[in-house]
Write a protein that binds this DNA or RNA. Structure first.
Lengths: 171, 171
DNA sequence: ACGGCTTGGTTCAAGTTTGAAACAAACCTA
DNA sequence: TAGGTTTGTTTCAAACTTGAACCAAGCCGT
């Protein structure tokens, strides 16, 4: 079948989206680099850890939540560990496992950086959108993400309910 | 003043957005890497050039349109030039300038890759959105981009109408 | 208990991005 | 028109990302 090219509306949306996402990520990266000495992803790692039970998470779970590869996460955590914001611990129940724990230092950095980060997100994103648009953005994003996660989520099909594939509770 | 944290709705939207944009870019990068041997940005460079008059554009203009730094563009174009998809030419009217031109080979690669790319964008993005949502996405993206470009665009304030700051027409 | 498959994580090399510094040409302005 | 600033582009080192390859450790069937 012959290609269905994008309609003019779709083209406009696509280009606007590309531009916006690039600019936004750049702005956020710059702000965090300035104020916290780390890029957005690294901040997100600290953030996710801080909200996890005991501030710890297995590498794979962390990667899954952040939607990044394990390899990328390994690199990032190695850096964060060097900087003392995260500690790696062995998983008792699964000797293959490695658990990343947010240190007090890491938590402190996070707390110090959070206000500035939120301000940035606010001023570049939410302050420019109506309440309605915020809802629309969520729905659109969910729709996109859903289509891209079939694989990642489907394997979890709970036909084996007794077996957590994501061992957050480990150790 | 004390920080205005994100509301639950905003948090949800923000997280969904981050996830979606990461996943989408990854998917598109992978597809293009597979089928065209280059990441999304590089494809975009060829694409923008292909639509420019004479298939050529000054580096700065190209960077501006793509919303990337000049340094990043320099690197990318160097690679594309090595691969023979782009040629660099000197600008006659401004000896500092450098003009990137899409070669026939580059155009051919673009033509060959375009259908697969469009299919990908379609299946991961537009097929999952209603017509309404496409419009919403455009508006939201425009709103975001606008806030982040004040600097880049404002200097262009046409109080000096006789002087094009973007010399697309050069050479 | 052995071999084979899968899973969790890391490693390594190659490629890309970043941001500051370096240059050179163009543009003032006194 | 000399000197100072701005603009267009590249360069360089350091940081980051990618994907394939690797190594253990768990899992499973026989």
């Amino acid at each position: 079948m012959t290609t269905r090219w994008l309609t003019p509306e779709e083209q406009r949306a696509w280009r606007a989206y590309i531009a916006a996402s690039l600019l936004l990520e750049d702005a956020i990266d710059r702000q965090l680099q300035q104020d916290a000495g780390m890029p957005h992803l690294y901040y997100s790692i600290l953030s996710v850890l801080s909200e996890s039970p005991e501030r710890r998470l297995r590498m794979t779970d962390l990667a899954e939540r952040l939607k990044i590869t394990r390899s990328r996460l390994t690199y990032a955590v190695t850096r964060l560990e060097k900087d003392g914001m995260v500690r790696r611990e062995a998983c008792r129940y699964d000797k293959r496992g490695s658990i990343a724990t947010l240190t007090d230092d890491g938590f402190a950095v996070l707390e110090r950086a959070a206000p500035g980060h939120v301000d940035t997100v606010r001023s570049f994103l939410f302050d420019r959108l109506s309440e309605e648009q915020v809802g629309q953005l969520e729905e659109i994003s969910m729709a996109i993400a859903q289509g891209l996660q079939e694989d990642g989520t489907r394997p979890a099909s709970d036909d084996v309910p007794w077996r957590r594939r994501s061992s957050t509770a480990c150790s």
